[in-house]
Write a protein that binds this DNA or RNA. Structure first.
Length: 403
DNA sequence: TCTGGGGTCCTAGGACCC
DNA sequence: TCTGGGGTCCTAGGACCC
C-alpha cells in the first residue's frame, strides 16, 4: 500500500492480555486478585501470563507454575480462558480495522498497523496523537488496555512498545531510528534469543551501540551473510518488512503434555486420535485442507523429534489425518521407544477447500479420503455444533468405509 | 522444585528434473 | 562413463516469538 518513505507503523500490543481477559471473565473472583497468574495448574504446568503486581516477585511467563508459586505463594492461578481470548482478540482487531487501512495480526495480542497515506485524511494528525486516540478507542470499545509503539519501521515500533507499557504510547520520529535503537541491549531486539546472544557475546557484543560500530563485512563473516545483514540493519533501526494485511495462516496444530509419561502404544494411539480430531475440526471450520501432516514427540528426557508426510492432495477428514498421523507415530516409535512426555499433530501446506482438485488425478493410488468421507465429516461437525461435542464420539468417525 | 501450547521463519541435505 | 549447474519440492531440526 504505502511506499518505503511514508510508512507510519504502529504496533498495538495488549497489556498482559491473558490476565486482562481472565479478569474480565470473572470480575468478582480472579478479577479482584492483584497477584493473578494465568497458566497450567498441573504438575507440569507453566505460567502463560502474570499480572504486573505478580511480576514484582520475579514471576515471568514461561516459568513453571510450581516455581512461580514458590516465589509468590499468595498468587492465584487460573487456567487460560482460551475461547474468551480468541473473542476479545477478534474484537480488538475489528476496531482496529475501522481505524487503520492496513492491519496485520502478529499474534493473538499484537497487531501491526500502517497508517502511511492517511495523513491528509487525518488532517495532519501527529502519529503519536493517532496512537493515543487508537489506545483510547480500543479501551472504550473492547475493555482491553493496550500500549502502542510507533515509527517508520516495524522493528522500531516493536521496541518502542516496551517503553509504552503499560497503557501508554511511544512514537519514534522519522530520522531518529538509529539514535533510538542505540539505547538498548542486543537482548532487547526481537529475533535475538539465547542462542544468538551467546554467539554475540563470544564476539564481545552485548549492546546495540557496540554492534553498530562493527563493519557489515565482519558481521557477515562472523554470523553468515544472512544474519550479518539482518543484524547490521536492525541495530540501525532498519526493517524492510512491510505490514502485510493479507498474511494467511500457514499451519494448524494441537499438542498435549501428559500428566505422566506414556509408553503404551494403544494409549498413544488414543491420544493421537483426539489430537487429529482437534486439528481436523479447525481445518474444516476454516474451509481448508492440508497436504502435510506432522507428528511431534517429546520423549521423557525432553528430546523432541518429528516426522512429516506430504500427500498429493489436501486432506480434511479426521480419519485421513489420523491414518497419516498413526503411521508417522509408528515410524517415530520404531526409531526410539521410550516414555512419551508430549504428543502433537500438526498440518501445513494448507489449500482452500474449493481450490482443491475434485478430479481423480491419482486413480491408481488408494485415496486416503473420498468425497463421501468429507461429506460425512462436515455433517458430524454440524451435529456437534448443534447437540454438543459428546453427541458423536470419535469412534464413529473412524468406522470402516464401505468396501 | 526444570521446561505449555500456539505459531513463524530459516537452513541444509537429498531427490528429481531439465 | 563422467561431469556440470540450477530449480523445486520434501524432510528434519532449530531458533525464536507471545
Amino acid at each position: 500500500m504505502s511506499s518505503q518513505g511514508s510508512r507510519r507503523i504502529l504496533l498495538v500490543d495488549c497489556d498482559s492480555f491473558f490476565v486482562q481477559v481472565a479478569r474480565l471473565e470473572d470480575p468478582d473472583g480472579a478479577g479482584r486478585h492483584p497477584l493473578l497468574l494465568v497458566g497450567g495448574r498441573s504438575n507440569r504446568g507453566v505460567i502463560t501470563s502474570a499480572s504486573y503486581a505478580a511480576r514484582e516477585y520475579g514471576v515471568r511467563s514461561g516459568m513453571p507454575t510450581r516455581r512461580a508459586l514458590a516465589l509468590c505463594p499468595e498468587a492465584e492461578v487460573v487456567p487460560v480462558p482460551r475461547g474468551a481470548c480468541v473473542e476479545r482478540s477478534r474484537a480488538v482487531r475489528e476496531v482496529l480495522h475501522e481505524l487503520s487501512p492496513v492491519v496485520q495480526a502478529a499474534s493473538i495480542d499484537e497487531f501491526y498497523l500502517d497508517l502511511g497515506g492517511t495523513e491528509r485524511m487525518l488532517g495532519g494528525e501527529e502519529l503519536a496523537a493517532t496512537a493515543d486516540r487508537i489506545r483510547r478507542v480500543v479501551r472504550e470499545r473492547t475493555g482491553i488496555a493496550v500500549s502502542l509503539g510507533g515509527g517508520t519501521q516495524r522493528v522500531v515500533a516493536k521496541v518502542a512498545t516496551r517503553l509504552a507499557k503499560p497503557n501508554g504510547v511511544h512514537v519514534v520520529a522519522p530520522g531518529g531510528e538509529a539514535a533510538f535503537m542505540a539505547r538498548f541491549r542486543l537482548s532487547d531486539l526481537p529475533g535475538i534469543g539465547p542462542a544468538f546472544l551467546r554467539q554475540l557475546e563470544e564476539k564481545g557484543l552485548s549492546t546495540v551501540k557496540e554492534a553498530a560500530a562493527v563493519e557489515a563485512e565482519w558481521l557477515a563473516r562472523w554470523f553468515g551473510p544472512g544474519r550479518g545483514t539482518w543484524l547490521w540493519e536492525r541495530v540501525r533501526g532498519i526493517d524492510p518488512s512491510e505490514v502485510d494485511a493479507r498474511d494467511r495462516r500457514k499451519s494448524i496444530s494441537s499438542e498435549r503434555t501428559f500428566f505422566e509419561d506414556i509408553d503404551d502404544d494403544d494409549e498413544l494411539e488414543r491420544r493421537i486420535l483426539q489430537l487429529s480430531c482437534n486439528v481436523g475440526r479447525q481445518l474444516r471450520m476454516k474451509e481448508l485442507r492440508a497436504r502435510t501432516v506432522t507428528v511431534k514427540i517429546r520423549d521423557h528426557d525432553f528430546t523432541t523429534r518429528q516426522a512429516g508426510n506430504t500427500q498429493p492432495e489436501g486432506l480434511e477428514t479426521d480419519r485421513a489425518i489420523f491414518a497419516v498421523a498413526t503411521s508417522l507415530l509408528h515410524q517415530l516409535r520404531h526409531r526410539r521407544r521410550t516414555g512419551v512426555r508430549l504428543l502433537g499433530v500438526g498440518v501445513s501446506n494448507l489449500v482452500r477447500q474449493a481450490a482443491s482438485a475434485q478430479l481423480d488425478l491419482f486413480g491408481d493410488r488408494i485415496a486416503l479420503e473420498s468425497e463421501r468421507d468429507r461429506t460425512i465429516a462436515r455433517a458430524v461437525d454440524r451435529i456437534r455444533d448443534r447437540y454438543g461435542r459428546e453427541a458423536l464420539r470419535p469412534a464413529r468417525v473412524l468406522e470402516e468405509p464401505d468396501k
